[in-house]
Design a protein around this nucleic acid. Structure first.
Length: 187
DNA sequence: CAGTGGATGCTCT
DNA sequence: GAGCATCCACTGT
């Protein structure tokens, strides 16, 4: 993968491992993606299961390359990279970053926290990067977003997704091997 | 460390 | 009214 941008018009399962090691910034604040999960329209654990549209998941039906942001547990925001073709609900949930730019801004947004926990988890990541509902549906190839493909090969580990109760058998969680910025270790 | 429970609000049935 | 794609503080080793 030597392109500058990740091709997001592919299935979430193809995109997810390619996002590990890529860089994401929001208004210049962010870092290296170290953990993601794939969700597709045939997946009972996904918001877009059965391609059923709702007010919440509308952005999932945009063509690959947009943001899908939803409220989690009433408190947190979670950011997805929408994948695939328009009209098919699939996306990759961004679960953790290794923070590299704007550490002071992230620390201020997150409060008194160690660097390791700044973006270790989907809710923490959005808080650190300032992602809210206002970003839902925005294209990822324009400001405030910047998404750059990784330039070197990385070692990727997989495992079951976190925090779900349906379709738990699939190993659709992808992480950067050995990273200390994961939300949880891989088995 | 591991395990537990509360906070919190929106979406969908 | 149930059920969350979570986080944090607190407990007990």
């Amino acid at each position: 993968m030597t392109q500058r941008h990740v091709n997001l018009r592919r299935s979430a399962h193809a995109v997810a491992p390619d996002l590990v090691g890529a860089e994401l910034y929001v208004d210049g604040v962010g870092g290296v993606i170290v953990e993601v999960e794939a969700y597709d329209h045939e997946d009972p654990a996904a918001h877009g299961f059965g391609n059923r549209r709702s007010e919440r998941n509308a952005s999932m039906f945009l063509p690959g390359g947009h943001a899908y942001v939803y409220r989690s547990y009433g408190i947190h925001w979670c950011l997805n990279v929408v994948c695939g073709e328009e009209g098919v609900a699939e996306a990759v949930l961004l679960r953790a970053l290794e923070p590299t730019r704007g550490l002071d801004v992230m620390r201020a947004r997150r409060g008194l926290h160690q660097e390791r926990l700044l973006c270790a988890g989907p809710g923490r990541l959005c808080q650190a990067l300032g992602v809210t509902k206002a970003h839902d549906g925005l294209p990822l190839d324009r400001p405030p977003f910047e998404l750059r493909a990784r330039r070197h090969d990385v070692e990727i580990v997989t495992g079951p997704r976190i925090g779900i109760t349906k379709a738990v058998e699939h190993e659709w969680r992808y992480g950067l091997a050995g990273s200390r910025f994961l939300s949880r270790r891989f088995a």
